[in-house]
């Protein structure tokens, strides 16, 4: 009996066709999901620009926040709200600066310590605590700062108290990023230094840190972008101020604090959007700069 002739070619073609269709379906799903992921950020930025651009002018950066009557008058006569958020901008930068000069040296040193002693018991305990610290809600850090700094050190709401809370938030971020960055420096580079008779501390200072420098800077920038928008811990510590303040023992404003104040005042609504736009700009810029540094390093 003659076997019926099978068409091998058409069997294979059938299979290729079904793969092709499956591939299309899955690419479609993945593209849709990624669009869903990126759409919030795009929508946020578009909304902020649409609502906030009117208020962005020179006085926005050079004048302090207006009071509610000035704002009301302007709205009634159809003008943009006068004044700006200089007190918030300077306050944010001031407190981030204070937090950074505390967190960067300590964070780098602890990060180096953890990298060098990663297997030791004490270092592991420190690592675990760092991880826990990273998870502590920011409002709790604000409370702690309130009880330690506001009540006992500055005897009142202060930039010091605000930056202390931010410092605690920054610390674990810098510690872990330092440790991770140094881990990426190959051991062979370290050994090359040792084989030249270079002492241990000089290997850290002159080989490890320069080799990982871009990573360390990136970690610091990302930690700044993480804390610059924090509101909750500042409410309990820095409180806010209507004037520019560079005194660490006095209440100080910050952009997110101003946004909260504007939200509570129906006359100031327009300023919410422009302030948010500026804050968003800071965060985006820091992130983009970090990305740039990383991609340069990988070249």
């Amino acid at each position: 009996m003659a076997k019926p002739k099978l068409k091998y070619n058409s069997i294979l073609q059938r299979e290729v066709k079904s793969r092709f269709i499956k591939d299309k379906i899955f690419s479609g799903i993945v593209i849709t999901l990624s669009l869903i992921t990126i759409s919030p950020i795009v929508l946020i930025i578009l909304k902020l620009i649409a609502k906030g651009y009117k208020q962005i002018n020179l006085s926005f950066f050079t004048e302090t926040a207006p009071n509610t009557f000035q704002a009301m008058e302007a709205i009634n006569s159809g003008n943009v709200i006068p004044g700006g958020i200089l007190n918030g901008i300077t306050g944010s930068l001031f407190m981030v600066f204070l937090a950074s000069i505390m967190a960067i040296p300590i964070g780098l040193l602890v990060g180096i310590f953890l990298y060098e002693n990663g297997t030791k018991r004490y270092a592991n305990i420190v690592k675990d605590i760092t991880d826990i610290l990273q998870g502590v809600p920011s409002i709790v850090l604000g409370l702690i700062s309130y009880f330690w700094v506001v009540k006992f050190i500055t005897n009142g709401f202060s930039a010091m108290a605000g930056s202390f809370a931010l410092f605690i938030m920054m610390l674990p971020l810098i510690i872990r990023s330092t440790e991770e960055t140094l881990k990426m420096v190959p051991d062979t580079i370290k050994e090359a230094g040792f084989a030249l008779g270079v002492p241990y501390h000089k290997i850290i200072l002159r080989v490890l840190i320069p080799t990982g420098l871009s990573g360390l800077i990136t970690g610091i920038l990302l930690s700044i972008s993480r804390i610059i928008g924090e509101t909750a811990p500042l409410m309990l510590t820095a409180l806010g101020s209507m004037s520019v303040n560079f005194d660490i023992s006095k209440p100080t404003s910050a952009i997110p604090l101003l946004i909260w104040q504007f939200y509570n005042d129906p006359n100031m609504v327009d300023l919410i959007w422009s302030s948010s736009l500026l804050l968003m700009f800071f965060v985006l810029a820091l992130n983009l700069i970090s990305k740039q540094i990383i991609s340069k390093r990988n070249k």
Partner: peptide, 29 residues
């Protein structure tokens, strides 16, 4: 310093120039 060592994989210091790599032993010390 009296016994030099060369490793399995080339490991020049990535942050240093060619000439600095040569005198790395002096520089780093």
């Amino acid at each position: 310093r009296k016994i030099g060592m060369v490793f399995q994989r080339p490991n020049p210091f990535p942050t240093m120039s060619i000439s600095d790599n040569v005198i790395a032993g002096y520089k780093l010390n």
